[in-house]
Amino acid sequence: MEAEMEVGMEGELWEGRAEAVLGLNLCSSVPICYHSQFGPHEDLLLLEVDDNLLPEILQNRVTIRGQPDEDAVLCTLSSTYSMKFVGTSNSVFLIPPGDSSANGEKRSSVAASIITVATGNIELILAAPKLDKLKKLLKETPYNPDEDFDSISTHKKGLFRWQDLVEMIQASEEEIRAALKSLSAVEIDGYWRIVDDKTMNKTLTMILRNSLLHDWLISALDEETVLSTMVADGFSPRIVAHCLETHGTKVRDSKGTLWELGEKQVCLRLALDILASGKMKLKSFLERWEQSVPSGMKADLKMLQGEVLCDKIGVEEWIRVFSVSALPSTPADRFSALFQERLKWEWKDLEPYIRDIHVPGLSSEGLLMKYTRRIQPNAEAEPIFSAR
């Protein structure tokens, strides 16, 4: 069976293009016939890609990820793309490689055999990584030094190696690594874990106490000295090193590796430890917080943006933990959770809880227009945001 097809060469990618259609001019025609293997070929994907993404695909640096109950995404080493089927009004014929054909004047007498007809293509759209699942998995089994690791490891319950995460999380490898860092996750015995708050609080507190006892400068803590001292006190060297990485910056000099503890990281950890038992009157909290902060550091409420909320009840002001890390990462779910917490938000309170949302092609102003209603009686008044 043969037919004529009109070919419009307007920059489309023809994967596996056969010689029979190479070099055709606009509005030319060529005979076609059905290949012996003609059929639906449901395992074939026709992708619409731009020039930036094409090299990644041709060099096999992409992976399609997703469980049976999830919409598939395509991941490069650094980015995530949603996959959306788009039907086309024109028929797209897929021609397998290796068709023999003549050149020049003989071309018109040679039929191009088609292996299938595509009714559409997969459109790839740059998307935000889906990381809520990563947070959920790691928070289900936080690490503490008293756990029976051998028992957990034997049954592999709630523990995940790097390859497990890559296969389960719909995000690129770079995005997964960045998320692990933001969650302060650490690899212990081959498994990625989040260290429980009590262990981290205890470890940091002991480092600060030792700095007073041994006259260590918290701006220049010698790694070897800290590790040997803490191990002698019964602490795990891996957790001590992780505590330094989480709360400090590495500085190298001729004598070895030094760590400078960060003011914001340390003050935030101490503040959350104080609030772990529940909400407090703001005045009482500030007194305790300032007393706990090591010499040379200054506590400032701005350090707690996105981690706590202040509520005025009567004449008293109270403070409580409300961390952005515990909120969903998708915009719709994030705003839903925020408006469940408060019906109305002032911008100074709302901004810390949405600044980490990055949606390709949508600005912060666009997010606010899509998910909130803005109320501002006059130009001088602070805007108030409620659910749309």
Results as ranks from 00 to 15, higher is better:
residue 254 S to R: 14
residue 200 M to R: 12
residue 297 M to N: 09
residue 174 E to V: 11
residue 112 A to W: 06
residue 201 N to F: 03
residue 118 A to G: 10
residue 282 L to T: 10
residue 337 A to M: 02
residue 72 A to V: 02
residue 208 L to K: 04
residue 321 V to K: 09
residue 80 T to C: 15
residue 283 K to I: 14
residue 3 A to I: 00
residue 110 V to S: 06
residue 31 P to L: 09
residue 344 K to H: 07
residue 275 L to W: 09
residue 72 A to N: 03
residue 300 D to E: 11
residue 253 D to K: 06
residue 213 L to D: 10
residue 222 D to I: 03
residue 100 S to A: 11
residue 8 G to P: 01
residue 183 L to I: 00
residue 70 E to R: 08
residue 363 S to N: 07
residue 54 L to T: 00
residue 326 A to S: 15
residue 107 R to A: 01
residue 307 E to P: 02
residue 374 R to M: 13
residue 140 E to C: 05
residue 240 V to D: 10
residue 188 I to Q: 08
residue 330 T to W: 10
residue 123 E to T: 03
residue 136 K to R: 12
residue 9 M to C: 10
residue 24 L to W: 01
residue 351 E to I: 01
residue 250 K to G: 13
residue 212 L to C: 09
residue 382 E to D: 13
residue 271 A to E: 08
residue 93 F to H: 13
residue 258 L to R: 09
residue 262 G to T: 08
residue 218 I to R: 04
residue 314 G to K: 14
residue 64 I to Q: 03
residue 324 V to Q: 11
residue 75 C to W: 09
residue 185 A to D: 03
residue 30 V to I: 12
residue 204 L to R: 03
residue 385 F to D: 08
residue 139 K to G: 06
residue 131 L to T: 10
residue 153 S to M: 08
residue 147 E to K: 05
residue 381 A to T: 07
residue 77 L to V: 12
residue 14 W to Y: 04
residue 222 D to T: 06
residue 117 V to C: 10
residue 115 I to F: 14
residue 53 L to Y: 03
residue 23 G to V: 01
residue 117 V to A: 05
residue 223 E to T: 07
residue 215 D to S: 12
residue 76 T to W: 04
residue 321 V to A: 09
residue 222 D to N: 15
residue 276 A to W: 11
residue 387 A to Q: 14
residue 197 D to G: 01
residue 303 M to P: 09
residue 98 G to E: 09
residue 132 D to T: 01
residue 173 E to R: 02
residue 378 N to D: 15
residue 88 T to W: 05
residue 176 I to H: 05
residue 358 H to T: 14
residue 316 E to K: 13
residue 136 K to Y: 15
residue 124 L to Q: 11
residue 149 F to S: 12
residue 203 T to C: 07
residue 298 K to E: 12
residue 261 L to E: 13
residue 267 C to Q: 03
residue 61 R to A: 02
residue 323 S to V: 00
residue 61 R to L: 03
residue 251 V to A: 12
residue 257 T to L: 14
residue 7 V to P: 03
residue 53 L to E: 07
residue 369 M to F: 15
residue 51 D to I: 00
residue 360 P to A: 06
residue 152 I to G: 05
residue 334 R to E: 08
residue 121 N to L: 13
residue 24 L to S: 02
residue 181 K to D: 10
residue 200 M to E: 11
residue 384 I to T: 14
residue 167 E to D: 10
residue 357 I to T: 11
residue 116 T to I: 02
residue 107 R to Y: 00
residue 88 T to D: 14
residue 385 F to H: 08
residue 302 K to C: 04
residue 265 Q to I: 00
residue 307 E to T: 07
residue 210 N to D: 10
residue 222 D to E: 12
residue 254 S to W: 08
residue 125 I to L: 14
residue 135 K to A: 07
residue 75 C to L: 02
residue 235 F to W: 10
residue 150 D to Y: 04
residue 150 D to F: 02
residue 235 F to P: 02
residue 209 R to Y: 08
residue 223 E to F: 05
residue 148 D to L: 02
residue 371 Y to L: 07
residue 20 A to F: 00
residue 49 V to Q: 09
residue 315 V to H: 09
residue 94 L to H: 15
residue 358 H to L: 08
residue 365 E to D: 14
residue 218 I to S: 06
residue 132 D to L: 01
residue 134 L to W: 07
residue 329 S to Q: 12
residue 187 E to D: 07
residue 165 L to C: 02
residue 42 E to I: 00
